[in-house]
Design a protein around this nucleic acid. Structure first.
Lengths: 252, 252
DNA sequence: TTATTTATACCGACTAGTCTGTAAGTTTCT
DNA sequence: AGAAACTTACAGACTAGTCGGTATAAATAA
C-alpha cells in the first residue's frame, strides 16, 4: 500500500488530467491523453444528436464517427445518460461564459443600459451572421423535444441555462426601462424570454431552410423591437437608413 | 401455450376506443370502422413523439397507448415512416385550414390590412392563452430536430407548411407596409418568419417552464412590434394603458 | 541503466433485451 | 363467400452495456 495520500478512489492520474497540460518537459510527447478521446466522443455525439436526436444517436454510431471503440466510450462515460449530462453541461458552461463576455464588451462600449443591450444583441447578430455550413442547432431544444428520455439532473441544467439567460437579459432590460419608459406596457420577463424564443425559433427556421441566415435576421428584429419600444427618440422614419450598432443617443 | 380467442388479458376489443362515442347502441353500430383505430394510433403516436421524440416513440409504445396490437398498426401503416408522413400531413392540413379561418375572421372584422394582421395575431394570442394541461409542442419542430430520420417527402411537408405560413403572413405584411411605411427598414420575409420563430421558440419555453403561458406572451410581443413598427399613430406613450384584450401585466 | 509494478486508456467480442416488420390465422360485417 | 379489420407469434437487426484482455507510460526497485 501506498503510504502518503491514502487516496481511496482517485490515485491522481499520472498522465492526463486537464489543469495545465501545457507543461512540457522537453518533448511534447502527447502522453496518452484521455481528454482527446473524450472530446472526440462528445463532439461526434453532439453532431449526431443535432441530426437525428438523442435516441437515434446510438453508441455504435457515435463511436464510428469518433473513430474509437465501444470500450473507450464506456471507459469515459459509464452510460449514455451520463454522456447526455456531460454534453448539456459543457454547452451550458460555454454559453454562460459567452454571454458574460458579450455583456462585458457591451458594458465597456457604453454606459447607457439600453445601448448596452442593443450592442449586446448586435454582437450576437454579428456572430450568427458569420455562421455557415452545417445548419446549426441547439442541443437544449433537441433535448427538450425528447425530454422524457432524460433524468431530472440533465433537464435541470437546461432549465438553469434558460433562467440564467433570462435573468441576465432581464436585469439589463429592467435598467433600460427605468431610464426610458416603454411606449407600450410590457412584461420584462417575457420580453427577456423573447430573445431566447427568437434564438430557438431561428435555429428551427435555419434547419428547415438549410440556411443559417435566419439567426441574424431574428436578432435584428429583436433589436428593432427594443429600440422602438424604448429608445427616447425613434430612429428616423421610413426610408432613411440607420447605421450599424449605434443608435441615436439622446441626452435624456 | 397458445391461447385461443377467449383471452382474458388484453382482448382490447376492436373498434372500441370510445373517444366520444356518438354511436351508442341499437342499429347504427359503425361497421368495423378502421378510421377509429387509425386515429387512435395517430393520436397516441403524436403524444408520445412530443414527449420522447420519434425514435423513442416505438411501435410497441404507440400500440400500448392506443390499446391495439402490432398487427393492427401495420394494417393501417405499412411502416413507421409512413406513420410519420401521415402525422405531419394531418398537422399541416389542420394548421393551414386554421390559419385560413383566422385570416377570414380577421378580414371580416376590419378592412385595414394592418388591423387584420393585428387581429389575426390577437386571435392566436387568445387561443394559446387558453391552453393548459400537457405542455404543448410542435410536431414540425420535433421532426426537424430528428430530420435525418425522415425521407424527403416527409420533411418536404414541413418545409411547405412553413413557407405557406410565411407567404400568407408576408402578403398581409406587404399590404400593411404599403399603407403604413415602417419606422425602420425591415425585410418582409424575415418579419413574417418572425411569427413562426416566436411560436416555435415559445413552444420550447413552455416545455422548459412547464407552463403554456409563454405562447400567448410571445404572440403579444409580436403584436407590439408590428404596432410600433407600422401603426400610423403610436399607442399613447408610457404609462397610459391600451385598451382591450389584455391586462397590463405588471413587471415580473 | 534496466526490470518490475501499477494505473490509465483503450479494444472488440459477447449478452440480454428491444426494435421494426412479417406471416398466418380469427373475427366481424356485407 | 369474401373482404375488411383485426390478433398472436415470431424473425432478424440493432440496442446499451459488460467483460476479459492489451498497450502505453510513469513510478519504483534492482
Amino acid at each position: 500500500m501506498r503510504r502518503s495520500s491514502h487516496s481511496l478512489v482517485k490515485p491522481t492520474s499520472p498522465y492526463n488530467n486537464p489543469p495545465t497540460t501545457s507543461q512540457t518537459h522537453g518533448k511534447a510527447c502527447l502522453p496518452r491523453d484521455g481528454t482527446i478521446t473524450r472530446k472526440a466522443i462528445m463532439d461526434a455525439a453532439q453532431g449526431l444528436i443535432l441530426e437525428t436526436g438523442f435516441s437515434a444517436a446510438s453508441v455504435d454510431a457515435v463511436i464510428a464517427r469518433a473513430g474509437i471503440t465501444k470500450g473507450a466510450f464506456f471507459y469515459h462515460f459509464k452510460s449514455k445518460a451520463e454522456l447526455a449530462l456531460a454534453l448539456v453541461q459543457r454547452d451550458a458552461e460555454a454559453d454562460t461564459a459567452h454571454l458574460q463576455s458579450v455583456l462585458d464588451r457591451a458594458e465597456a462600449l457604453s454606459r447607457d443600459p439600453l445601448q448596452q443591450l442593443l450592442i449586446c444583441i448586435g454582437l450576437y447578430e454579428e456572430e450568427t451572421a458569420k455562421l455557415t455550413a452545417p445548419y446549426p442547432g441547439c442541443l437544449y431544444a433537441s433535448f427538450i423535444y425528447e425530454s422524457q428520455l432524460f433524468d431530472d439532473a440533465t433537464m435541470q441544467v437546461v432549465r438553469e441555462v434558460f433562467s440564467h439567460w433570462t435573468a441576465r437579459i432581464g436585469a439589463k432590460l429592467e435598467a433600460a426601462m427605468a431610464m426610458y419608459p416603454p411606449r407600450l406596457p410590457v412584461n420584462v420577463t417575457t420580453l427577456a424570454e423573447m430573445s431566447l424564443a427568437l434564438a430557438e425559433g431561428a435555429f428551427i427556421l435555419s434547419k428547415v431552410q438549410r440556411d443559417p441566415a435566419a439567426l441574424a435576421a431574428q436578432w435584428r428584429h429583436y433589436r428593432n423591437y427594443l429600440e422602438l419600444l424604448l429608445a427616447p427618440q425613434l430612429p428616423s422614419v421610413a426610408g432613411v437608413k440607420r447605421d450599424k450598432l449605434d443608435a441615436p443617443v439622446a441626452a435624456k
